[in-house]
Write a protein that binds this DNA or RNA. Structure first.
Lengths: 232, 232
DNA sequence: GCACAAATATGTTATATAGCACTAATGATT
DNA sequence: AATCATTAGTGCTATATAACATATTTGTGC
C-alpha cells in the first residue's frame, strides 16, 4: 500500500504532536486536513475574520501581526514548522484580533476548528497540549509588553535579533540567521521606525556585534547582543 | 447540618464556575481550599516564584504586574471577585513571570494546582474553562501590546480609565469608578510617568471629561473618553 | 494637634525617537 | 540593457515624553 503525500507529511512531520492522538482520531484529522500554499506576503487570515481553521505550518515562515495607528504594524509572534496557530480566537469565542501572513512561500494545513473542539473534549492530552501552548504564549506576550514599552531602541532591536535566532536558528556557519526579512519588518518586530531599525543595525555593525550583507544577518557577538537586550 | 463559612462561600460565590464540577470534585476542592487574607499592597506571589496554587479572588482587588527597567512597574491585568489567577505559569511549566499583589485588603482562596491538574484531566468542561480564560487573556495581552506601544499618552490614560470602568464598574451614581488607586498605579497601568499621569488627568478634568476628587474619579463623558482611547 | 512621610501637583529642561526629505542601491519587468 | 518600483541608507528637524526640581497637599503615627 502506498501512502499518500498528505498522509506522509502527517505521519512524518506531525508525528511528535499528533502522537497524542488515538488512531481513529488521527484518521479523522487526516480526512479533514486540507493543504494550502501561500505565496510570500500573502495573508492567511485577517484581523476581524471569523476563526474557522486550526492552521498547521508545514513549510515556510509565518508572522502574526496587528495593524495599529497610522498603518504601523506590530509583529506579535513568529511561527516555524511544525507549529499551530489561528485557534486562540475560536477558543476565546472572538473574531481574530490579529492577522497572519506568510513571510515567505509557505505550506500550511487547515483543520476545521469544530473538529479540533470535539477532539479536545474527548482527549485530555490534546486539551493539555493547547493549555500548554496558550499558557506559554501568554507568558511571552506579557513579557513582550514590558520589553517593548520599557526598553530603548537598541535593547528592542537586540531582542528582536535574539528572537529571530531562538525561532529560526543559525545556518550551517553557526552565525547567520536562518531568516531574511526587510528592514521594515525588523522595525515592526521591534516597535520602531524603519529608519531607526536601519540606523541601529548600522551601529551594531560598527560595534562588531553583527555583520550585515543585505538581508543576511550574521551575529558575531551573541553574548553582547543578549547583554544589550537585557539591559535595555 | 450547619454549613461552614468556607462551604458557604464556595457554594454561593463560586457556584457559577464550580457548577461545571461534579459533586465529588467539588468536595475535593472544598477539602483543599485554603482561605488567605492579604493586606493592602501585600504581595501574593512574586516573579520568579514557583507556582503552587490556583488563586481565587473572593473579596477585594488584585493587580498583576511586572517590574521593568529602573524599578518601573507595568500593570498587566486587574482581577475582581470571583476570578482565578496564578495558574498560567504552572500550565506553561515555568516560574511566574509576573507578580500579584492586593490592591486593597483582599480575601483569596488557594487550591493546589496539582489537584486542579488532576481535575482538568478528568473533566473536559474544566479544561475548556481554562482554555477559554487563557485564550481571552492572550487576546487581551496582544491588544495591549499595540495599545501601549502605539498610542500617545492621552490615548493610553483614556484606555486605562476605560479598563477600570469595564473591570470594576461604577458606583451607584453611575459615574464614579468603583476603584481608588494612586496616580502612580494609574501611571503603571498606562505606561507613563506619575507626573504625566497627573498632568493628563488634569487636562481631562479641564476638558470636562472627568471629575477628580482625590482618588475618586468620576467619568462624566465616557463617549469622549472612548474616542480619545480609540484615536490614540 | 503636631511632626513627618507619602502622595499629588506643576514648571522647566533634556533627550530619545518619530517624521520628513532626499539619495543610493537593489531588484523586477519588459 | 533600460526603465521603473521597491528597499535601504543618511542627515536634519520636530516633538512627545521622561527626568528633574520643587512646592503643596494629604495622610499617618504618636
Amino acid at each position: 500500500m502506498i501512502k499518500s503525500t498528505l498522509e506522509k507529511i502527517i505521519s512524518e512531520d506531525l508525528h511528535e504532536i499528533w502522537s497524542i492522538l488515538a488512531d481513529d482520531e488521527k484518521r479523522l484529522i487526516m480526512d479533514n486536513f486540507i493543504i494550502h500554499n501561500f505565496k510570500k506576503n500573502q495573508i492567511i487570515y485577517a484581523e476581524g475574520d471569523e476563526p474557522e481553521y486550526l492552521w498547521c505550518l508545514i513549510k515556510g515562515k509565518v508572522k502574526k501581526f496587528k495593524d495599529g495607528i497610522g498603518g504601523r504594524q506590530q509583529i506579535l509572534r513568529l511561527h516555524r514548522p511544525v507549529q499551530y496557530f489561528g485557534y486562540r480566537a475560536y477558543f476565546a469565542e472572538e473574531k481574530y484580533v490579529s492577522s497572519a501572513a506568510a513571510f515567505e512561500a509557505s505550506t500550511v494545513g487547515a483543520v476545521p476548528l469544530s473538529l479540533v473542539k470535539t477532539l479536545i473534549t474527548k482527549n485530555s492530552d490534546l486539551a493539555w497540549f493547547f493549555i500548554h501552548e496558550l499558557s506559554r504564549n501568554l507568558g511571552g506576550s506579557d513579557t513582550k509588553i514590558v520589553n517593548l514599552t520599557q526598553k530603548h531602541i537598541r535593547g528592542r532591536l537586540a531582542e528582536a535579533l535574539i528572537i529571530l535566532k531562538d525561532n529560526y536558528g543559525y545556518e550551517d556557519d553557526n552565525s547567520t540567521l536562518r531568516i531574511y526579512m526587510s528592514r521594515e519588518d525588523l522595525a515592526n518586530l521591534s516597535n520602531m521606525t524603519t529608519s531607526n531599525a536601519i540606523r541601529t543595525l548600522t551601529s551594531f555593525v560598527n560595534e562588531k556585534i553583527i555583520i550585515v550583507d543585505g538581508r543576511r544577518i550574521k551575529i558575531t557577538n551573541e553574548p553582547m547582543l543578549r547583554k544589550i537586550s537585557k539591559f535595555g
